[in-house]
C-alpha cells in the first residue's frame, strides 16, 4: 500500500482542509509521484482515506490531464502547442523530438525513457517554444537545445538548461 509509509504526509495534507475530500488532488499527486501513474489500487486507497467510493476518485482523476492511468516513460516531454507557442515554432519542436527519438506524439521510447505529448498552454508564452519535462520547464527551445536536453536527461537524469524562477525579460543592467 503506497500510503502506508506516507502516513505523516497524509495527515499533514488532511489537516489543511475542513472537508477530507479536498485532499484528493494532493493525494493523487503523491500517488503519481510514487508510482509514476495513478494505479487502481492507489485510487482505492485514496477512496478509503477520504471516505469516498472508488468511482468518485476515478471521475476526479479523469477530469485532470496531468494524471496518467497507465505507466509512461521516465521523462514526460510535454510540448506546448497552443497558439502563442505555435507562432514561434512549437510544431518544429515536436518534429525535432520525433526525429531524434523516433517516436510519434503519444508514444514512449522502447527503453521507457521518454514519452512525448503535446499539451495546451503551460503559461510561458513569452518564452516559447517551450516544453515541460516532468516538473521542469525548458524555454526558448532551439533544435540544438532540445538535443542537449534529451541527451543530458538520458545520460544524467538531469539537465542544467531547465529554467526558473521565472522573469522575462531580464532587467537590463542599470
Amino acid at each position: 500500500m503506497i500510503f502506508d509509509t506516507l502516513q505523516q504526509q497524509v495527515e499533514e495534507i488532511l489537516a489543511r482542509y475542513p472537508v477530507k475530500r479536498s485532499a484528493i488532488l494532493p493525494l493523487l499527486n503523491m500517488a503519481q509521484e510514487q508510482e509514476g501513474y495513478v494505479s487502481e489500487s492507489a485510487m482505492r486507497e485514496i477512496a478509503k482515506i477520504l471516505d469516498l467510493t472508488p468511482p468518485q476518485v476515478f471521475e476526479t482523476v479523469t477530469f485532470y490531464t496531468m494524471f496518467h492511468l497507465k505507466p509512461i516513460g521516465k521523462f514526460h516531454l510535454q510540448v506546448c502547442k497552443s497558439l502563442m507557442c505555435a507562432l514561434v515554432g512549437s510544431d518544429d519542436v515536436v518534429g525535432w523530438i520525433q526525429k531524434k527519438l523516433g517516436i510519434a506524439t503519444g508514444q514512449t521510447t522502447p527503453d521507457n525513457t521518454f514519452t512525448l505529448s503535446v499539451v495546451e498552454c503551460l503559461g510561458s508564452c513569452g518564452t516559447g517554444p517551450m516544453m515541460q519535462v516532468n516538473d521542469d520547464y525548458y524555454e526558448q527551445l532551439s533544435e540544438e537545445k532540445v538535443g542537449r536536453i534529451l541527451d543530458d536527461l538520458k545520460r544524467d537524469g538531469i539537465c542544467s538548461l531547465k529554467t526558473g524562477p521565472f522573469m522575462y525579460p531580464q532587467p537590463l543592467a542599470k
Binding site: L52, T53, P55, Q56, F58, E59, T65
Partner: peptide, 10 residues
C-alpha cells in the same frame, strides 16, 4: 447515497 456512477473524462 451509493455513488457508483462516475462521469469519466472531460
Amino acid at each position: 447515497d451509493v455513488k457508483a456512477l462516475a462521469p469519466v473524462g472531460r
